[in-house]
Amino acid sequence: MSRIAARFDALRAQNRGALIPFLEAFDPDRATSAAILRGMPAAGADLIEIGMPFTDPMADGPTIQAAGRRGLLAGATLAGTLEMVAEFRAHDPATPIILMGYLNPLLAHGIPRFCDDAAIAGVDGLIVVDLPSEEAALLAPDAARNGIDIIRLVAPTTSDARLRQVLAGCSGFVYYVSITGITGTRSASSEDLAAAIPRIRRATDLPIAIGFGVKTPAQAAAVARLADGAVVASSLIETLAADLVDGRAVPGTVEKFLGQIQALANAVRTARHTNSEAA
């Protein structure tokens, strides 16, 4: 069983949702992002999403764009990101790692080689934003050969008919993009989510995580009641960015990031046992 499936099974047995925090590789530098990554499981991350910096992140808002720029300035490469994952994996055999990014750096690395290297490093899943199901054959065979899950995005614009096609090649979990928009901007209303999730649920047995616009502990808790996981990205990166001095980490930067994860984790862990209203 894959790490992702095992983790969601375990969480289901505990009747709680997953917190999936995000960090951008090498943001603001390699050592800081490696320290954040290392501290995430203890802070309450159930799965971890790592952004692979790209010069032209078309689905990302200003916060993640800036994180990517800082990462690239700090020397991020695909190989460097995989190295970071391998270091993490040496100490943590269980927490699933999902890489999120755009297609071109993967193509430059070579898709078969990238999938081989990612599997060796201990990567469990891939989210490639600009690779819709129409173009999926480019990546699917090499990912499958290496036991790497392809996590598909489902959007509010994805029709029921299209949903079947999108889910056909999806494994690990389904990532519901809760708004039509870029990362870190609006948040979906709980009414919209309450309508959207059962629609996807009817089409798949895979766990469903919700991302885009999940910012506060209250929002993460609301999401964890409706779905199987909450992805939190921009609000964490905003905290990091606000803490930097001249673009550099300062003492306490890592702790502040992890502290925010802890608050989110507490909210997610107790979400299904409390009746608090969604924010």
Binding site: P132, E134, T158, T180, G181
Partner: peptide
């Protein structure tokens, strides 16, 4: 029909845009 000129072209956009 998939928008290819030889190996070039295609539709590499996020799922949100694909239906559009």
């Amino acid at each position: 029909t998939s928008g290819r000129f030889g190996d070039y072209g295609g539709r590499f956009v996020a799922e949100t845009l694909m239906p559009l």
